[in-house]
């Protein structure tokens, strides 16, 4: 097996996991009954999918670096570095945004559907 095949297999596995969870998140938007359960699907699954998608891109950058050619290697290093920064930005902003939406929804009076328990008290 040459280097390209090995990198291709690694990328295919990581990319498969990423695409599966991205699609689970989007399908969850249609399968779940109300805004809170939809937030569960959207936030968790797409964040997890993004982690693996960026791992795919980093693997691709490393593959291009191993191919040599000094002139373009700076561009691929930049791709890897900025991908890590993009991942950090997503990991911090996604749960915070989900929390903001859930809080706004509950305070504007959207009740959770099919709820077995609701201990939320109105605070004004």
């Amino acid at each position: 097996m040459d280097t390209e095949t090995i990198f291709l297999i690694i990328m295919a596995v990581l990319g498969g996991i990423s695409m599966f969870f991205m699609l689970i998140g989007v399908i969850g938007l249609h399968r779940f009954p109300d805004v809170y359960t939809r937030l569960h699907a959207a936030t968790k699954a797409t964040t997890f999918g993004s982690i693996f998608l960026i791992l795919v891109v980093i693997t691709y950058g490393i593959f291009k670096l191993t191919e040599g050619n000094g002139e373009t290697s700076g561009a691929f290093m930049h791709l890897i570095g900025m991908s890590i920064v993009a991942l950090l930005a997503l990991l911090i902003t996604n749960p915070t945004g989900a929390h903001a939406i859930a809080r706004a929804a509950r305070r504007s009076g959207v009740k959770p559907e099919q709820a077995v328990v609701d201990e939320f008290e109105e605070v004004d």
Binding site: L29, R38, L53, Y60, A86, L90, A98, I101, A105
Partner: peptide, 26 residues
């Protein structure tokens, strides 16, 4: 049906667009 539902969908689109941009860059 409600405004928060639309915002959740918008948030999901934003996350996917960021991933898509990184993939396009590669």
């Amino acid at each position: 049906p409600t405004a928060p539902d639309r915002v959740v969908a918008l948030d999901t689109v934003n996350t996917i667009v960021v991933g898509l941009m990184v993939a396009f860059a590669a």
